[in-house]
Design a protein around this nucleic acid. Structure first.
Lengths: 300, 300
DNA sequence: TCGTGCGTTGCGTGCTATGCAACGTGCGTT
DNA sequence: AACGCACGTTGCATAGCACGCAACGCACGA
């Protein structure tokens, strides 16, 4: 469609792997230096890239700012943050918060494990819905029409020997997930990594995000991991309540209402333990999205 | 230079303020819907934006991923993070880590204060060098040539009544900063916000980043803030040592630490072309990407 | 001093991004 | 239930501009 824009985006992606010189980039894109230069200049005008003293290009401030703003717009993230911090402080396992976008999941927050094992995941990474616990948790509750739409785009590619690669197996799995209220992934997405996940619900009852815990089986067996499920469900329950969800089965099981009574959620916010996760995801204006304040226009 | 790319970048910036529909964007850019549509499609191909079910566009996963990668490439950030977390836990004040890029500073990390006061700053935001403590700390130690280059681009715009708006005043201030080893900002950048800052040094002795503490005067008077200076200098000292800096030797060599993690920095760089030599110029801080903490998955 | 490697510029050409107008569709209204 | 509007989407013709080429400038190393 827009060729030059496409090239510029590739430049940005390339710079995501590390700084590069002009004809590093020209070589990588297979175009003339001149072309790259001009694209870079336009990118630099808006601070999407910058040049250091040695004519090497780096990702610029605007990229960081946009990501920071965009992440703040995910309301769930701010609401979940303090709860996830507590959970992570207590259990010390790699914990992700994900959303469903299109037919994939996207990690919108990540808390590192306390041991020295680091996973290759990263905020902004996309992952398949069919081979991840979070994907199952998010897809399981979709209304039929949307479920169909999502599934039609899933490729069921095999990632490990355990990956579910047929639609039937996956649907059966989803039924299990729906029934038990949480999902697992037994080395289905990455070898020797097990995973459990549970959905976060909004006032309407829909799953808007999923919390997942990923552990290498050297650190913890699958059975040990499953022992964390009650704790996981407790966190997602707390986050969901903060998000306006009301547990069913109490008195009036009335279907979704428009305006959710989540006004009282504000003050639960500040019991977060500052510093606990601050160095992991600093700059996530945790309180603010939940307080209903739009990130809005704060001038420099 | 590249008009269509420029429009696309403006779209991204616009989306940073919140989701938007097709002709929200067309209106904002002043171009035809068709144009915006095609740009958005190209952006969507690479997941820089995505469409939700209601034809509203949002920033996409790639933006988040790029920012995450880019931030990890700032070697200082990873080194500083644990120290800043401790500092923040102890003192509970809004703490920033900044770098000098061009003639401005860029916040590359932020830790929130423990009180309920939130500042409008944000990772990726740029700020002037002449009205911020971090700017002064970073500029003060620049060699004359680079100092001149930076100053020539500074506009000395007034932000508050206290802002230093003449080159002479600023140079005098820099001399003070250089002498005392830290910088302050007494409501020079933002009304009723005071600030102190100290530089982080690398092995070469150059200031590669600055840690700054910002406090509203309602919370803490300037004099109280200054009492944090020793603690601030202690943190920057620790970060600098972790970064390879060795204190100007006055007497006995301090006990040798473990190998500084920054020494592997040259490794990942020149894998692209054998002819591309990385000329290390003396006196240019190309603090560069360090693969140190990164998970090993570069995109294929 | 020369040579090489890299970034930068002016210019003509062919591509492609653009705006227009028409079509399709979902949603709120009558 | 039918209508009309608003919004997203498509085909097409034009011209604006992005592209590659070739030449220049500069800095570093021999």
């Amino acid at each position: 469609m827009s060729a030059s824009l496409g090239k510029a985006l590739q430049i940005l992606v390339r710079l995501g792997a590390g700084p590069a010189s002009l004809d590093d980039l020209a070589g990588a894109l297979g175009v003339h230096k001149t072309t790259v230069l001009r694209l870079l200049r336009t990118l630099a005008e808006d601070h999407f890239v910058y040049r250091d003293g040695n004519h090497r290009y780096h990702l610029g401030a605007t990229v960081f700012e946009l990501a920071s703003r965009g992440l703040d717009q995910r309301e769930v993230r701010g609401i979940a943050a303090p709860h996830l911090a507590v959970f992570n402080a207590e259990h010390g396992r790699t914990t992700h918060l994900s959303e469903l976008v299109g037919s994939e999941i996207v990690y919108i927050d990540k808390l590192e494990s306390h041991d020295h094992v680091r996973m290759a995941s990263r905020i902004g990474l996309r992952a398949p819905v069919h081979s991840t616990a979070a994907g199952k948790a998010l897809v399981a509750d979709l209304p039929p029409a949307e479920l169909e739409q999502v599934l039609s785009a899933v490729e069921f590619t095999r990632a490990t020997p355990n990956t579910l690669v047929t639609r039937e197996d996956y649907l059966a799995e989803l039924a299990r997930v729906r029934e038990q209220g949480w999902a697992h992934d037994r080395e289905e997405n990455e070898r020797s990594i097990n995973c459990i996940s549970a959905p976060v619900r909004s006032a309407s009852g829909r799953a808007v995000a999923a919390v997942s815990v990923s552990v290498p089986d050297i650190v913890m067996t699958y059975d040990q991991l499953v022992e964390l499920v009650p704790s996981l469900l407790a966190v997602t329950g707390r986050i969901s309540r903060d998000h306006g969800w009301q547990p069913p089965s109490t008195s009036n099981p009335s279907p979704p209402r428009k305006a959710a009574p989540h006004e009282q959620q504000d003050r639960r916010q500040d019991r977060r333990r500052p510093g606990a996760r601050a160095h992991l995801q600093p700059g996530s204006a945790q309180g603010r999205a939940a307080a209903g304040l739009r990130p809005g226009t704060d001038g420099p």
